[in-house]
């Protein structure tokens, strides 16, 4: 298209028309490029999000079998959803997810904030500390499982080697119900405390130094400054980190799949682990889809509740 513009520029006689002509020309250009530029995104979303979601809902209302690469669908109405009510394992998986999310979110928030405050107090080496601390957050979850299997394994693990050296009986760790849940929580905290640290640390570095200086001139001790000035100022960052951690907790799959496979029994069967087994071990495609739809609706419900309560709080505090 630049050739037309150049042609306009070289034909000296029509110089007067140039601005007008170009404005026209630009509006036409915006026209197709504006729509073309979002088209690929739209196609991807339609084909790989909207269509699969449609399939999911459709499957949820049927008894579905996979025969020679084709899905055979027979309508069953709401049967899949009523079946869910009496599904003990689904209830257990929801409960396990709740326990896992609550513990990991609280622990990573406390440790992450503590670590951010400590790092920020260093005279030297802040950059180095930040660089090292975030490593776990970018390593593949699968590798995180490998690392912790090498530590927790009853047969060869580092932890039991240490216990044996001190003459203490080796433990089963991932082998019993409580130990397994505690272990996956510890692993998750090791994995994701860095992300909370990074959020809070970045916010901490962005605080207005004059506010903090004023507080220290007023003679407040470090602990008082943190308690009454720094933490309130960090509240948005901490809440943001909490929201992200909760979402990650709902999604969690990889570590559990490799460390415990949801076991022993159902001790660490969280939502995603259970969905996988319904779909790929029991081949209950319709029921699995119904469970998925329910989980998505639950997540949306929680989100709406959070938004509503937030705006309620805001309105109340303004009144």
């Amino acid at each position: 298209m630049s050739t037309t513009a150049r042609a306009g520029a070289t034909s000296g006689g029509r110089d007067v028309d140039r601005p007008h002509e170009q404005r026209m020309h630009r509006r036409k250009q915006i026209h197709w490029f504006k729509y073309l530029s979002v088209l690929p995104l739209l196609i991807f979303f339609l084909v790989l999000v909207a269509f699969p979601v449609g399939q999911l809902v459709w499957m949820a209302f049927g008894r579905v079998r996979l025969v020679a690469g084709n899905f055979l669908w027979r309508p069953v109405g709401f049967d899949n959803f009523t079946e869910m009510m009496s599904d003990r394992v689904f209830g257990i998986s929801l409960w396990n997810s709740a326990v896992f999310i609550t513990s990991t979110v609280v622990l990573t928030l406390v440790l992450g904030v503590l670590l951010a405050l400590a790092t920020e107090r260093l005279i030297r080496g802040q950059q180095l500390a930040q660089n090292v601390i975030i490593w776990p957050a970018i390593i593949a979850p699968v590798v995180i499982s490998v690392i912790w299997l090498l530590i927790l394994s009853p047969q060869i693990g580092l932890l039991n080697r240490i216990l044996i050296s001190f003459g203490i009986n080796p433990q089963a760790w991932l082998g019993d119900n409580f130990g397994a849940m505690a272990s996956v929580i510890v692993v998750d905290v090791w994995h994701w405390t860095p992300i909370v640290f990074l959020f809070v640390y970045t916010a901490l570095r962005g605080l207005d130094p004059e506010v903090l200086e004023a507080a220290s001139v007023d003679g407040a001790s470090y602990m008082q400054r943190v308690r009454f000035v720094v933490l309130p100022l960090l509240a948005p960052a901490i809440l943001g980190a909490a929201a992200i951690r909760i979402i990650m907790g709902v999604k969690v799959f990889d570590e559990m799949y490799l460390l415990t496979f949801g076991g022993p029994g159902t001790a660490t069967t969280v939502i995603s682990i259970y969905l996988r087994s319904v779909f790929f071990d029991a081949f209950e495609y319709g029921y699995g889809a119904a469970l998925s739809v329910t989980v998505v609706l639950l997540v949306l419900l929680v989100l709406i509740l959070v938004f509503v309560s937030r705006s309620l709080i805001r309105r109340l505090s303004r009144a």
Binding site: L66, N70, K251, F253, S272, L275, S292, V296, V299
Partner: peptide
Amino acid sequence: LLQVIPPMTLVPGLYATLT
């Protein structure tokens, strides 16, 4: 929204689509 939904919940639909 797509960031918030657990990917595992979309697997049945994606499986049908990819098939």
